[in-house]
Design a protein around this nucleic acid. Structure first.
Lengths: 238, 238
DNA sequence: TCGATTTTGTCCGTTACCGTACAAACTGCA
DNA sequence: TGCAGTTTGTACGGTAACGGACAAAATCGA
């Protein structure tokens, strides 16, 4: 995480970081480092994905959108992954929306360039397959979590997951926003947030949270956080 | 679906059916047609997957299992797909459980043989990537569905999905079983089932349902059924 | 044929969460 | 400084679903 632990090729993204120089060389053609801030759209349902993104810092969100516009988060992507798996799968579009959430940067690569490289069945394709497996676990677990766990538990999961991907213990977050990600009422989040604050686990002021006690949050969260985290660590490294 | 609509290579499985003869030839080594009945285990959480299965008829279930043993369904697999994606992804195990549900048969292939073939990056790998994209949509949609839709809606989705994969309009199903798949109380399913029966959409007797009015069920179901079905049809064919 | 088991019907009090609404508190801009 | 917009606190009645329990009905096995 610190500068001195960076590998030679200079990437922080855990997928790019592990790729052989030759692959990186071919990807460079369509590659560009971009700064991204909250709400930047990455792809829309049923629109062609022109680029994929390998986050270096910050975080992106992937959402399922219903016809009435309601949406809930199905996955988040940080420096361990890539936004744009459908490109890898050979699909031009997907039914999901993706946007950037926690300010940061990412290497953006032309969909066509990435696709060409993955079709060689080399290191990149292997890495993305492993990553796919991890995301699968994440989404499956979420499906179960959404069904069986309380707002408070799911709230804690979300905070922990985001904390993992942010530099420091503080980040921007409104109750309104979190409620939409979790697919609940804003008031529900406000109540939970107040409880967590009273318990000394977090502190928050208008649109900004601080994680005060990670251990405590982990205790309140359901097992889903640990399960998913474990899968990512073992499949994508670190 | 009838015998005379079978393609020349004789497979009903929509993935195998479309593969070139050369690929099938190489897969034959580790391939065997097996009959499967309800509850047959296919793989267990954190145990090595020895085989993958390409269903010819009937259906399998994939479940997320929590530490306390509670489980809910995250995906179902019929003749459009394959059970054992983690093998394709290069993982030896996964956090999910899979078992057979609606009696039928499947081509079982040694994990190692399948894995070797997919690493050639040819037709099989392309097909499985497309299939992965469809399953992704399915699981994502389920995550959202589990969060936002009523038991009645989800119940109808499940019945429709299963109906698609069964020969005829009748199949075995207890309220108890369905409640576990949906992650709700058995009594909840009983109430919904009674409502649907009164409305003339289904009929059921001890452990066996008959679909009487598909159109009607589709109206009660949430949009999730149609969304997922559409994705499968466009990506895997038929 | 009878008892045991499985499956379904039904009921009860309880709870988590919903939808909605409104006011208070804070922030930013003119 | 004051006004508008954003964010949070809180309260309310309403409801879907829960956990648990028990009995009726159908089926199976001995």
């Amino acid at each position: 995480m610190k500068a001195n632990s960076r590998p030679r090729n200079g990437f922080r993204n855990r997928i790019l970081k592990r790729l052989p120089a030759a692959v990186i060389g071919r990807l460079r053609k369509g590659m560009r480092l971009v700064e991204l801030t909250q709400w930047d759209p990455l792809y829309e349902p049923h629109e062609t994905c022109k680029y994929v993104y390998f986050p270096e810092s910050g975080m992106a969100s992937i959402l399922s959108v219903l016809k009435d516009g309601t949406m809930t988060e199905v996955s988040t992507v940080g420096s361990e992954g890539m936004v744009g798996l459908p490109v890898f799968f050979g699909a031009k579009t997907s039914a999901r929306r993706a946007f950037w959430q926690v300010p940061g940067s990412a290497y953006r690569i032309d969909a066509a360039v990435l696709r060409r490289e993955t079709r060689k069945c080399g290191a990149l394709s292997d890495a993305l397959l492993r990553y796919t497996q991890a995301v699968f676990t994440q989404v499956s677990q979420l499906a179960t979590c959404n069904r069986l766990h309380s707002i408070e538990q799911r709230c804690c999961c979300w905070l922990l997951q985001t904390h993992d991907r942010v530099a420091g213990d503080e980040f921007d977050l409104t109750h309104e926003f979190l409620s939409e990600m979790l697919g609940t009422r804003r008031a529900g989040v406000t109540e939970v947030a107040a409880t967590l604050q009273r318990a000394g686990l977090i502190r928050y002021t208008r649109g900004r949270v601080t994680i005060l006690n990670r251990r405590g949050l982990e205790k309140v969260a359901c097992e889903c956080y640990a399960t998913v985290r474990g899968e990512f660590d073992s499949l994508v490294g670190r």
